[in-house]
Every structure is written in structure tokens, then in C-alpha cells.
Design a binder for these strands. Structure first.
Lengths: 173, 173
DNA sequence: ATGAGTTTTCATTTTTTCTTGAACTTTCTG
DNA sequence: CAGAAAGTTCAAGAAAAAATGAAAACTCAT
């Protein structure tokens, strides 16, 4: 039995040096987890590759090894850089930027909280205020019921707000 | 100034009794939060409507008020039922099922953890095992580096596994 | 059993999201 | 300073996800 890592069987569009089994596992793993927080496949691929790379990789090598486009690579790296999941290293005698994964995975969690979760919570708080204004329009019976529901929402948002910093702290340990 | 809640200005395809401001706020809020855990807009709409409804609603009323399709309503309700976010109530003298929102929002969190997060963690654990096997193929220097990375992944998965039950418990308070 | 009312299913269409690649900008080198 | 290399941007195409609606399946009252 031939090791699955050595060469791809069907001719790939662009020649791409095959990924090792280990790299494939890492990449698939990050595709899965990062998709969970709404990041596209290509971003997962890039981070996965960099996470197990033993040395900084220039963009064209990332493109070639993953078989993704220039645009996807550029945008993906930009995004990963934007929340510190990837850093640029200088490589003497080479004009290309070289990329290294920051191994601190908590960055993804904090970026997700800051960019996705917190804004929604903020908007929800405003919504609840508006909902409370609308209460006045309701007949007494419905108002009572609805007040209780709104109270429940507030309770939940409160709880969310309280637990978030705690989670962030736990992550960074 | 006319209250925006009374009637929609442009003729909707199907007649739909307008949603109140309060309902719109609730619906948009749930669309936003449920999207975060990968649920489609229609599911957020349905749950939002039911969350502020002061009485059980039959499916055709949900369809009519939200202006969504039969299929979306049926599937959305099925999904919401499947993790206990919505329950069916019996309404005497009416053949239609009537739906009520379960107000315990933690159900969404636990469903998300059980159906999305935990399976990925489990697959990741398997992947890591395979990655450890692959380590043998690497030259000593790279092996050392990679071992450290894998250790880090394990550490993270461990941490995730440990915090999850805690979060679930906190949610249910 | 029949049929009207209700609900589910699923192939198709629509919408949204992601990727591509070519044009453009920037940056370095000789 | 010209030209080539590297990187960015974005309109258009491809892929993935969600919504639609018609047909099938169920369910009850007669």
C-alpha cells in the first residue's frame, strides 16, 4: 500500500507539492473549527498550513501548496493578520513577506467575541430599550406577559456580558 | 407621524398582517443571534415571533405573518422542536398544531454544543492521534517543533472540553 | 373508507457567500 | 528611474446554503 501522502494521483491544475498527511490533518481540523466562527475554508487552510509549518512561508508557497488563488491567499492572510493569528517575519535577502502562525489560539476566540458577539449584544440592548417603549401600546394582559419575556431577554444578555470576560480570561491561561 | 407598525406601505406578495414594532425587534434580534450558531434566517424569524407571541400560533399563521414559505416554516419548526426551543400545544376543536416558544434560551447553547462543537472536538481528537503517528516520518528537528505544536492543540482541546460543561451549567442558572 | 385539512418532503430556484484572476498599486533592485 | 517582483483590490464566476412550492403523506371527522 502506497502512503497517501507522497503524491496526488490525478493531475492538479497547477503543480502543487503534495501536502503531508500531517499537514492535511491540521488543515482539515482548522477548516472545521474556523468555519464554526464564520471564517471561510481558505482561511482555515492557510492557518492550518502555517500552524504545522516548521518555518515561515511566503505567500506564493502557500498558494502553491494549497492550490488556492492569489486573491484568496492575500485576503485570508490579511484577515488572519488583522486579529493577530498570523505574523509577518522578515527574511533577509528575500523581498517576499514570510508568514508565521501565532500559536495562541485564544486570538480566534477573542476576535470572534469582539467582532461578532459583542456588537450583536450591543444592538440587542438597544432593541430591548425600543421594545420596552412599545410595551405601552399593548393591552394590559398582553403587556404583563410581554414584560416578563423582555425581562428574560435582559437577564440573558446580562448573563452573556458577565460570562464573556471570564471566558476570555480562561482562554488566555 | 404615522406609527410604522400599522400597515406595510408596499403591497406584499401574499397578504400578511403587519408585524408590530415589538415583534420586528424581537425577530431581528433572534435572526442575529441564531445566525451566530449557524441557523438560517427563517428559523430566527419563527423563534422570534413565537418568543413574543402571547398565545400559541398555528403554522399557517406563522407563514402568513412572516411571509415565509410552507417548506421553510415546516422545516424550521421541526428543527426548533428537535432541540426543545419550541413545543406543540394542543388546541381543542382545532386540528392544527399550535406552537409555543420554550423561553429557556440555554437550549440553543446546549444544542449548539452537542450538535456542532462536540462532534468537531471528537474528530479533532482522532486527528491528533493520527498526527502523532505521522510524527515518526519527520526528521528530528522538525519533529521536535511539531511535537510542541501538537501538544498545544491537545492542551486547547482539553481546555475546551473542561470549560464546556461549566458553561452549560452557567447557562441553566 | 372518503376526502378535506394539515403537515412533511424534496427537487428546483433563488440568494448568499466564497473564490478566482486580471488590473492596479506598491516596493524593491540594478 | 525603469522594470520586475510582490501584494492588493474588486468585478465576475463558482460553489454552498437557504427558500420555495408542488406533490406525497398523514390524520382526523364523518
Amino acid at each position: 500500500m502506497m502512503p497517501s501522502s507522497t503524491l496526488s494521483v490525478s493531475q492538479p491544475k497547477v503543480e502543487q507539492s503534495a501536502l503531508s498527511d500531517l499537514e492535511v490533518e491540521a488543515i482539515e481540523m482548522f477548516i472545521n473549527f474556523l468555519r464554526l466562527i464564520g471564517l471561510p475554508k481558505s482561511v482555515g487552510e492557510i492557518y492550518g498550513l502555517l500552524f504545522v509549518a516548521t518555518q515561515p512561508l511566503p505567500m506564493d508557497e502557500i498558494i502553491e501548496r494549497l492550490g488556492i488563488s492569489l486573491g484568496a491567499a492575500s485576503q485570508g492572510l490579511k484577515l488572519l493578520r488583522s486579529f493577530g493569528a498570523v505574523r509577518v517575519t522578515y527574511s533577509p535577502g528575500d523581498r517576499r513577506d514570510h508568514y508565521v502562525a501565532d500559536l495562541e489560539l485564544s486570538r480566534f476566540a477573542t476576535a470572534f467575541i469582539k467582532e461578532e458577539l459583542q456588537p450583536r449584544i450591543d444592538r440587542a440592548v438597544e432593541r430591548i430599550e425600543r421594545m420596552e417603549h412599545s410595551l405601552a401600546d399593548l393591552p394590559a394582559k398582553e403587556r404583563r406577559i410581554t414584560e416578563e419575556r423582555i425581562a428574560r431577554l435582559k437577564h440573558w444578555l446580562d448573563k452573556g456580558q458577565k460570562i464573556l470576560p471570564w471566558i476570555v480570561r480562561f482562554m488566555k491561561l
